[in-house]
Amino acid sequence: MDSAIPELATAGTLPSAAPAAASILGPGEVQIELEVNGERHELSVEPRVTLLDALRERLKLTGTKKGCDQGTCGACTVLVNDRAIDSCLTLAVMHVGDRITTIEGLASGEQLHPMQAAFVEHDGFQCGYCTPGQVLSAVALVREGRMTGDDAIREQMSGNICRCGAYENILAAVRDGARRMA
């Protein structure tokens, strides 16, 4: 396959700084620190709390959306150490020491990220619910150098379902956003 697989696997292990804690976490709440959008957050979560629910329900970062909670729709996509992952399929406690980027962390103040601006300009969404995931997947795709043409974009972006059917415009947005990011 490709090089992303082993790296994704390591992103799912407990941080080396806390190996002893690994065997005794939970079942009650544990104190962890998550780095989200460059800010450190202390929070107390049960080990069974997904990264998605920690972001939404504990940190009130509701830009990350829950669409299926089963890893099939991509609405919950966030960047963990720059890789796009489904935050519903991983636990918050597994991400101590990781750099997590959510949709709230992409723009610089009022200045939209080039990919965000491209989505607005090309109308790459309708209801907007899958959009945070689409934008973050697109950003990761471009940074990983997978922008090798329209077919590649369509294939690589297929983990993010847009039920409104905005794919034609998403394609245009990703194409243009990639140009702006270069």
């Binding site: 939404r56 329900e57 009130k60 970062l61 509701t62 830009g63 990350t64 959306k65 829950k66 959510t102 949709i103 709230e104 992409l106 723009a107 939209l112 965000q116 601006a117 989505f119 607005v120 300009e121 109308d123 969404f125 907007g128 619910y129 959009t131 945070p132 934008v135």
Partner: peptide, 21 residues
């Protein structure tokens, strides 16, 4: 015209029902 709610939707600021607390 671009959607006036576009910036809110691409930044995660648009609030859907489950986003309220």
């Amino acid at each position: 015209h671009d959607r006036l709610d576009g910036p809110a939707k691409v930044t995660g600021r648009a609030t859907y029902a489950a986003d309220f607390s």
